[in-house]
Design a protein around this nucleic acid. Sequence first.
DNA 1: GATGGGCCTAAGCAAGCGCTTAGTCAATGA
DNA 2: TCATTGACTAAGCGCTTGCTTAGGCCCATC
Lengths: 199, 199
Amino acid sequence: MVPVTDHVKGAEATRARLLEAAVQAFSAKGFHGTTTRDIAAAAGMSPAALYVHHRSKEELLHLISLTGHVETLGLVHTARTSSDDPVQQLLQVVRGFVEHHARGHIGARVVNYELSALSPDHLAEIQTLRHQIDVEVRAILTDGVRAEVFDVDVKIAATAILSLGIDIARWYSPDAPWTPAELADHYAELALRIVGART
Amino acid sequence: MVPVTDHVKGAEATRARLLEAAVQAFSAKGFHGTTTRDIAAAAGMSPAALYVHHRSKEELLHLISLTGHVETLGLVHTARTSSDDPVQQLLQVVRGFVEHHARGHIGARVVNYELSALSPDHLAEIQTLRHQIDVEVRAILTDGVRAEVFDVDVKIAATAILSLGIDIARWYSPDAPWTPAELADHYAELALRIVGART
DNA sequence: GATGGGCCTAAGCAAGCGCTTAGTCAATGA
DNA sequence: TCATTGACTAAGCGCTTGCTTAGGCCCATC
């Protein structure tokens, strides 16, 4: 006897279907290459249905981008606090980041390559999150260099490691010769080489 | 007394200005986010002028993409044939690739991130060039592993090194803490670490 | 000094865009 | 029983899109 809940659930399911359709479409055709009619049709709805559940096309992008960045920041922060050892922190960050971007490469493409389609306010908000991710990764490397377990230029290494992770969103596909987990292990090994970890 | 040449030069200069305006606009706003009116206006021309010099908006993208890929393939091929030493070949490839993508990050963004806006035929042509770039890089690493100067999984290392180079187009800006040449040197060093080059 | 050809634009066309309006319909609570 | 609510859509509004058309202008040539 929870008909209201059922009702809400139905509406929320539709909202989620529209969101998921937007992720797929933005990823495949880009924000500007996607029409609101594309999204609605992919969710099995009329064009107007999108506006029952979401304020605008840009708000959909913002929601996708925000969720994605919060997830990634959480993942990086968890890795940073999971151990006192910079080596373990680095391995955790790289494995988590890589697996997340490979498994979720469709969403990650939107998150990383459609920033310029965000409104100025939304873009500023997202840039703050991206900066925090940078800071956490750099902190791990700085700790490692201080403890003399890493030997590398911190800024270059942080840039390269994040770059490797983000670019997975561009090239990864299920046809790739590695599962997300396998790729994560390979990249963790490369990260150790990049930072010159003592073996 | 070469009025015809002057005439042609003027037309060709206009054509080049339109092309350059298209590069800037596609890079900043994406192919679908750019209008033909944007491009014409940035070149100081009327909207119709674009069609005097180029067949369509997609043909502009194809021209940009083709030129960029041919340049990159040439650069990689030159590095491959410049020496018999895999170490020298790798250093040359990475330095050339990185410097090219940093210095030309605006164009490189279009080349690497607007592939899905190409027509199916044009996309297929470009994918062939990208495959050739992959093959050349893998060949260098394979040679190095055979000669026991590198110690790494060739497929992973080739993927990572190309990934690092391409992603420069996304994040590099003149505000970055490295000039293109400095970045090239840093990345060359990282590449040696990635492939486990004997020191 | 008329002619022909190439660069260029004003105007506009058909189609598609994001989003709104006005209303239908089924389920709910009084 | 009946008014209310909220998910949903048909229709369409105002605007922008890629691209075309029709014609003006400049200039080398005859």
